[in-house]
Design a protein around this nucleic acid. Structure first.
Lengths: 402, 402
DNA sequence: GTGAAAGCGCTAACAT
DNA sequence: ATGTTAGCGCTTTCAC
């Protein structure tokens, strides 16, 4: 009924008077082909509404042009932006994305990676659930297809990794706070085994001594949630817990969700942000600028992460099917033996986004465009300027009257 | 090298002493099979580390067990939760998800739907970009595979639709505001052609007359963004624009992002929320309870939407390959001729979530678990209770000293 | 219940 | 530059 439903190469071959292989060569541009031939084949294909069957192509060519994207929890507000960039970059290169969400469960993660491999994905992009417990499944998968880790590591030497430079980001935050005269910072972060948690905490500890020489750093470690941010504030501002210290004048948070919880609770306690306490986040997730005050934070170079990850992936795709480190020239460079080296660990530079949570009197900006957060479930193109005098304000009585 | 890499059915057949077809029947449980046979075949498969090649299976059986999920913009905070539920429901049924993001562009949408069809997806789940401009591509796709629309429609009769009952949600909001004594509400929503925008606005207009009988409803229409929420407040609180009315005592927003922008700006203007003005949202996206005050909103039954959508999809998969309305008994019921009926439009009941933006003195809750928003990029299991006295608070000086 | 054979739609050798 | 011949790994008739 619908044209194009069941037209195969054979049909196009018949209709154009050429052989199946010639038609294949024309349509997949795999080899040089006659001038007029190409035209006539394409014409026939067009006329019949031919659409190549990618499954058949995949079976024969042993390449599905599909990559698996494995996320620990898509509801984490950092990932949607990453997913967008990755799908766009991959789409441009003709690759599709099989998405799986692991519910933060390493067992589900292992099972779903297995399922992706059964579907013959060409490669995997993985944000591992857990630094330790994800390792076996990820390592096994990496032995079968090119695999790039994103955002988090899962032990040394498992696969290439692309992530933000957490240490550099934390340094940006501490420099900023120091420049604004903050002298009694504390850190509210996560305790987990995930690499980002450890890296950010270590970077804080390393950098904070410049601000408070000689004094032990004040750390509160829970998880990467707003709830933990609220709770940590309750403790730090409770004198019994704090001991004899004065309350902090800056709270450095391990991510934006913690910072949002911190700001929320500080305000409930009547603490002025940023007057009494400055607050910083990390990641620059969409809700970070919706808080009041908006959160000063470290923006991850998400686009670059996506581009770099795909580049690494395709490097693995081009080289022999063997994703294993195969002693190629650049890998043969001498290494210190004790260092268990991930094949490549690309660390991309972050960017400090200064907002009202650290800088008072930031003119209540008339708004400002933000990356993903623009349109709603039924979104439409936004008005060009948020203060455009022509946008609709409709005291309405005429239409849709009850 | 790695076992399981290139083992095929033939290998298992040889190893078990059975024929390829028998092995196939055992492993896909497609037909009754000998008792001991099954055992021995499975044993051999296990031993060799056999993993079925889903691509070959798909080519032969004409079913990829894969569905395409087409989103307008994954960065919209409403979608991650939906994606999670959908992938989980589908995964339970052995189906994988090819995800595409359309960048809110109907042309990209059309191209990507085409690409999904070329990959032989069994079915499509689509949140259309635009009520009108998405129609041709969606209708064409619906003629080729079972297709279910989610969240938004794209014209009548194109495909089944599963969405929240926007009218019911708006009624919940208005009832709540009326019960709290609000008498001068206004609506800040979206102007777009997307169905949710229109439905919510219409429901507001229909319901508000009970609150303000005889008075024309006050509507401000822009888009579904926080920026528009801020701008709309600027206008409504500007006396030149408002004319002689008193400022509203309640702002009903078309979605949560608008509400977050509204709250942010009202606070900057020194307006007390909810004291002077109550604010409501719609959707209950994760950031909605991170605002201060947290946003009273309408929670979409996301899980139910996912379950129902998949149910409809599989109904289409079981019936003949023809997704077209085929005059089956239940569809043959008499219809009023003028009504262009979408095959099924499932409307699911929403749920009002009352938070501090409409109810003052909500005890500053010690926290509270929220669906998706729990863990960060390097998240770990959260402490059981947010006020647990045993969680770590570490004035640390020993480790990682720089 | 089991095996032999055919073939899904395509690409890749190998011919010419 | 084009055609011919083999399959990719699996499911599915069709026989027995």
């Amino acid at each position: 009924m619908t044209p194009g439903s069941d037209i195969t190469l054979r049909d196009v071959a018949r209709a154009s008077g050429y052989s199946v292989s010639t038609v294949s060569r024309v349509l997949s541009a795999s080899r040089p082909v006659g001038a007029g031939t190409a035209r006539r084949v394409r014409e026939a294909a067009e006329r019949l509404g031919y659409r190549p069957n990618q499954v058949a192509r995949a079976l024969r060519s042993r390449s599905t042009a599909t990559v698996g994207l494995v996320l620990p929890q898509i509801t984490n507000p950092f990932y949607p932006t990453l997913v967008r960039e990755l799908t766009h970059v991959l789409d441009e290169r003709g690759r599709a994305v099989l998405l799986v969400d692991c519910d933060d469960d390493p067992d589900k993660e292992a099972a779903r990676i297995e399922a992706l491999l059964a579907r013959q994905v060409d490669a995997l992009l993985v944000v591992p659930v857990d630094e330790h417990r994800s390792r076996p499944a990820v390592a096994a998968a990496a032995a079968r297809v090119p695999l790039v880790l994103l955002d988090r590591s899962c032990g040394p030497g498992v696969a290439d990794l692309v992530a933000v430079d957490n240490a550099a980001g934390m340094a940006l935050v501490l420099d900023h706070l120091a420049a604004r005269g903050r002298r009694r910072p504390c850190y509210i972060g996560a305790d987990g085994t995930a690499s980002a948690a450890a890296e950010r905490r270590a970077a804080y500890e390393a950098g904070v001594s410049a601000l408070t020489p000689g004094e032990p750093p004040l750390l509160a470690l829970g998880d990467f949630s707003a709830a933990w941010g609220r709770e940590a504030v309750d403790r730090l501002w409770d004198e019994r817990d704090r001991g004899d210290r004065r309350p902090p004048d800056a709270v450095v948070c391990g991510n934006d969700l913690i910072a949002l919880g911190v700001i929320q609770r500080l305000r409930q306690l009547g603490v002025d942000v940023p007057g009494q306490v400055a607050v910083t986040g990390f990641d620059d997730v969409p809700p970070a600028d919706l808080a009041d005050p908006a959160v000063t934070t470290v923006r991850q170079p998400v686009r670059d992460i996506a581009v770099e990850a795909v580049r690494l992936l395709e490097r693995g795709l081009d080289g022999a099917g063997a994703p294993v480190c195969d002693g190629s020239p650049q890998d043969a460079a001498p290494r210190s033996p004790g260092t268990p080296v991930a094949r490549h660990a690309v660390r991309l530079a972050p960017h400090l986004v200064v907002r009202a949570s650290t800088v008072p009197d930031t003119a209540p900006a008339p708004s400002g465009t933000r990356h993903g957060a623009r349109s709603g479930p039924a979104g439409t193109p936004a008005p060009r300027s948020a203060v455009s005098p022509t946008a609709p304000l409709i005291p309405n009585s005429t239409k849709a009257a009850q």
